[in-house]
């Protein structure tokens, strides 16, 4: 019952984010670029929930990729596949950086976010260099804000925001 509630709420959060991403945020653009909150949600989950089970990580990645694919004009499943590649990449990098994570947490977060977002934009959005820079800047700032909020709430109540603990 608890698990069902957990996965249903997770699916609802992703669904709401998807609708906001494609129907609300396009009205708030900077040089034609809107923040990619779905990707930020994916990355934040993968980064903070590094101890979550593989099943949870796979399920979250699949759900986010599925909703992105719904609005995408590419083959259905291409975003899911690519997000799995990024999940593997982030998990691998997190594994190697684990020892020093506490010390340079934000720096690791930014570095990993920039790397994965660049890959994502270049491959799935075919973004050019100029717009990629604006896109990257806009999304990194928003991701840092999410990072700080997440960390602040986590310090105050470590169990509150964790989706999988």
């Amino acid at each position: 019952m608890k698990a069902l509630l957990k996965y249903t709420s997770l699916a609802l959060v992703i669904l709401t984010t998807t609708v906001i991403q494609y129907s609300f945020l396009p009205h708030f653009t900077v040089m034609g670029i809107a923040p990619n909150i779905l990707f930020i949600l994916f990355f934040t989950f993968v980064f903070f929930e590094s101890n979550a089970s593989y099943f949870d990580a796979i399920l979250t990645t699949f759900t986010i990729g599925f909703f992105i694919d719904i609005f995408s004009q590419f083959y259905f499943g291409s975003t899911i596949f690519f997000l799995f590649v990024l999940l593997f990449l982030v998990k691998t990098m997190m594994h190697f950086l684990q020892e020093r994570q506490e010390k340079y947490f934000l720096i690791y977060f930014i570095a990993l976010f920039v790397t994965t977002f660049t890959l994502y934009s270049a491959i799935l959005d075919f973004t050019t260099t100029k717009s990629l820079l604006i896109d990257l800047l806009c999304n990194t700032i928003l991701a840092i804000v999410v990072f700080l909020i997440y960390q602040f709430l986590n310090i105050r109540n470590p169990k509150q925001l964790r989706l999988f603990s």
Binding site: Y22, S23, P26, T29, I33, F71, S72, Q73, L124, D125
Partner: peptide
Amino acid sequence: NIGIDLANDFLL
């Protein structure tokens, strides 16, 4: 209009 994919310029 229902939604727009700004990254790829597609409208729904």
